[in-house]
Computed example of a mutant assay.
Amino acid sequence: MSTSHTSMDRAVPLFDGLIARVRSLPPVATAVVWPCEAVALQGALMSLSDGLITPVLIGERTRLAETARQAGLDISGCEIVEASSPEQAAGHAVALAASHRVHALLKGSVHTDVLMTAVLAPGSGLSTQRRMSHVFVLAMPGRDGPLFVTDAAINIAPDLLAKRDIVQNAIDLHHALGFGAPRVALLSAVETVNPRIQGTIDAACLCKMADRGQITGGVLDGPLGMDNAVDADAARIKGIVSPVAGRAQILVAPDLEAGNMLAKNLIYMGKADAAGLVLGARLPIVLTSRADGARARLASTAIAALYVHATATARGVPSPE
């Protein structure tokens, strides 16, 4: 699962602005889980040097030292928690998070399923009433603000209640990053309710749930096709009158396959740059791909840090100082 594209190694004004905002805030204590490859370690150290996080490196000490030596990196000032395996590193990270020693988790070179298994384990202390979900934050060429895509990484075939949480997680992130109340498009293959297409029924229900206050902080519409969600002319031609159609800021996919293909299409063919975050746990989790560059990891870490600062009180955890 990839949260970004290698083109992220160039400067991106949207992400540069977010990173600049984090620099003015106290760094966030962050568990970096098994950063035993050069790019993972470099990303954590870039975030440290930019003042975004205070990393706690969790891994095999000798392996971390050798990785740093080969990459020309200095980890002498970093706290290191010894772990003999990726599984043990994930377990240590969850324990640090549950005790509020750290306020975010950053995936290093550990596999996603290993980290998430530890997070989701009974008794981890990280679960909430909210379903966990992933949000891509995309910087699109020619677009002023971000475009969110969810869920493309966690929930394979979400039911209606899971979709409610997926939508609310994305809305909450939009607010936390300072972008205000978003316009949310609930995507399907068509823009009318069709009983044979479950996604259209779920979209209609989600809109009514928003009307009844079961989803808050955003304006929802759906079902909408991808064309009339993002293109005003397509919406006009199809006669769709909506505050969301043609102007969507969050795109909600009906399932993981659709979301993953949509996000990767925008990244690899639309030349979008991307960062990403898992929300719904007691703290944000930065999932990165081994193919992600250090700058992409920096952008995702900045988004996590902004989320921590914006939501600490609401989540009932101490603010970073």
Rank of each mutant, 00 (worst) to 15 (best):
Glu60Asp: 15
Ala68Gly: 05
Glu79Gly: 09
Gly43Lys: 02
Ile75Asp: 14
Thr62Pro: 03
Val33His: 03
Glu79Tyr: 05
Thr62Asn: 06
Gly51Ile: 13
Ala38Val: 03
Val32Cys: 10
Asp50Arg: 15
Arg63Val: 11
Leu64Asp: 06
Cys78Gly: 09
Leu48Asn: 08
Ala40Arg: 05
Glu82Arg: 01
Pro55Lys: 09
Leu57Val: 05
Gly51Thr: 14
Glu79Arg: 11
Ala29Ser: 15
Glu82Trp: 06
Thr67Trp: 00
Val56Lys: 03
Thr67Pro: 03
Ala31Thr: 11
Ile80Tyr: 01
Ile58Gln: 06
Arg69Cys: 00
Val39Phe: 07
Pro55Tyr: 08
Thr30Pro: 05
Leu73Arg: 08
Ile53Gly: 13
Gly72Cys: 12
Pro55Glu: 15
Pro55Thr: 14
Gln42Ser: 12
Leu57Ala: 07
Asp50Tyr: 14
Gln70Arg: 15
Gln70Asn: 11
Val56Phe: 04
Gln70Val: 14
Val28Gly: 02
Arg63Ser: 09
Thr62Trp: 04
Leu41Tyr: 11
Pro35Ile: 12
Glu60Thr: 07
Arg61His: 05
Ala65Gln: 00
Ala65Gly: 04
Ser49Met: 10
Pro55Gln: 10
Ala65Tyr: 01
Ala31Val: 02
Ala44Tyr: 09
Arg69Ser: 02
Glu79Asn: 10
Ala65Cys: 03
Val28Ile: 03
Arg69Gly: 01
Val28Arg: 06
Trp34Ser: 00
Leu52Ala: 15
Glu79Lys: 05
Gly59Tyr: 00
Gly59Leu: 12
Ala65Phe: 01
Asp74Cys: 02
Glu60Tyr: 09
Val81Thr: 00
Ser49Gln: 14
Ile58Pro: 11
Leu73Lys: 08
Leu45Phe: 00
Ile80Pro: 10
